[in-house]
């Protein structure tokens, strides 16, 4: 964000505000929405330090300090959900991050324009599949009885595997289905960066006798490096923030030891529980949000220091 165009004196500021009064009128509705639907819940975070009683409401429930946080840190679930969250995130980052870059470089390099358009068209498509349908597809394909994967393995004499029922398969299924769904879409941002590289650099390199592969290595890749770093920062910052939706839909009692992450655990102890503990769940969620926030601040700071780029 750039600072305002000129430092205005107080008198001129007031005059400008009077002149622009309609701008404040216009932004009133969205601003009210942000305050009600974003900042009120933040105010509700005080629940994490209280013992919530429905009768008393958020404001009048008694304070208990860090009791819920201590309970979470000492619970046997703590290690499990943190470990699952981190392993899935890192797995996803390591397996999933390079693929859109490779695909974008390949798309950018091909000489067959029409073919390129077809590949783009098709690989973007899964991005628009809803999470529910995506998980439904996973369950159908991996079904031990009628799923095409198990039937295909059966042709080679392999016994069917109940992928969704075995904890050791869960993380791979989660990560690779995500890769199938988002790799194509992930190329867009890199393709934009690649198209911004001046053709003259390529021409010069060609004249100097560089092969296409060398031009990818020494022209294309450095050209999109800032984009790569920015996206890596974004991803690293959300390493503790696995979303609820897909993982929750993929969970079942058999794979829970491998699939329970922070966001689903918050749901398990509150809305899904017969004895909901709202304060405890809020504390876990608060802890998670704080970690996410600190992480993104740290990686951004780190990126600024490294001098490459930063998010804001």
């Amino acid at each position: 964000m750039k600072p305002n165009t000129s430092p205005l004196g107080d008198g001129r500021k007031l005059k400008q505000m009077r002149q622009d009064y309609q701008l404040y009128l216009i932004i009133l509705f969205p601003l009210a929405w942000v305050i009600i639907f974003q900042y009120f819940p933040m105010y509700g975070l005080q629940l994490a330090f209280k013992d919530f009683r429905i009768m008393d409401g958020i404001w009048s429930s008694p304070w208990v300090g860090f009791e819920h946080f201590e309970k979470f840190f000492n619970s046997y679930q703590f290690k499990r959900v943190i470990t699952n969250t981190l392993i899935i995130s890192f797995y996803d980052l390591i397996a999933g991050f390079p693929l859109p870059i490779i695909l974008a470089l390949a798309l950018n390099a091909t000489l067959k324009t029409r073919f390129k358009q077809v590949v783009q068209f098709v690989t973007y498509m899964p991005f628009f599949i809803s999470t529910v349908v995506m998980v439904g597809m996973i369950l159908q394909f991996l079904n031990p009885r009628i799923g095409i994967i198990n039937m295909g393995m059966g042709l080679f004499g392999a016994d069917p595997i109940n992928f969704m029922g075995e904890p050791e398969w869960f993380k791979s299924v989660y990560v690779w289905s995500g890769i199938w769904q988002t790799t194509g879409w992930g190329t867009i941002i890199y393709l934009a960066a690649l198209s911004a590289i001046s053709p003259e650099i390529h021409e010069a390199a060609t004249i100097d006798g560089a092969t296409r592969l060398q031009r990818i290595r020494h022209v294309d890749l450095p050209g999109i490096m800032p984009t790569i770093v920015t996206l890596l920062i974004l991803n690293a910052g959300s390493i503790m923030g696995i979303g609820f939706e897909k993982i929750f839909l993929m969970q079942n009692p058999l794979n829970l030891s491998s699939s329970e992450v922070i966001s689903t655990y918050v749901y398990t102890v509150s809305l899904a529980s017969s004895a909901p503990d709202y304060s405890y769940a809020t504390a876990i969620g608060f802890f998670n949000s704080m970690v996410n926030f600190i992480l993104i601040m740290l990686v951004n700071q780190f990126a600024k220091k490294a001098g490459e780029t930063s998010l804001w």
Partner: peptide
């Protein structure tokens, strides 16, 4: 617009931090 940056921060901050499941549900 005077105060544009403050309002912008107010909006942008919600992308980095939010109340989470339970406070939203209670609201």
């Amino acid at each position: 617009m005077v105060g544009r940056n403050i309002i912008m921060y107010l909006f942008a901050f919600t992308m980095l931090f939010n109340g989470g499941l339970i406070p939203n549900y209670l609201l």
